[in-house]
């Protein structure tokens, strides 16, 4: 999955869960001040992201530092990239 695919999927989660205007969802937009997502909405956001990316975000302390849409993309990207070596190793093990 490319960075662009990841970003696009994250945006879909925002639009689907909160009916936000896609054009307003930009990297520098603060989740609460600009997009109106309070702490309870963030919980719904995390559930939505977990469903789409099949990851358990609760294990990652980085999500506590999320403030903007750009932060969300950076954190998800980081988590998915960290998981890639595990996926590669698993495939290698299966081929042996």
């Amino acid at each position: 999955m490319t960075d662009s695919d990841i970003r696009s999927k994250i945006k879909e989660v925002f639009v689907k869960n909160f009916e936000l205007d896609e054009a307003k969802i930009q990297d520098d937009k603060l989740l609460f001040d600009d997009l109106g997502l309070d702490s309870l909405d963030i919980v719904d956001l995390i559930v939505g992201l977990q469903r789409v990316f099949k990851i358990d975000l609760r294990k990652y302390s980085e999500i506590k530092s999320i403030r903007t849409f750009g932060d969300v993309c950076n954190v998800i990207n980081k988590i998915i990239n960290e998981q890639k070596p595990d996926a590669v190793n698993k495939i290698s093990d299966e081929q042996k």
């Binding site: 001040d33 109106g36 309870l40």
Partner: peptide, 9 residues
């Protein structure tokens, strides 16, 4: 300002 959602939930 922006609204918190507790009362609406």
């Amino acid at each position: 300002g922006q609204f918190h959602g507790a009362l609406f939930r």
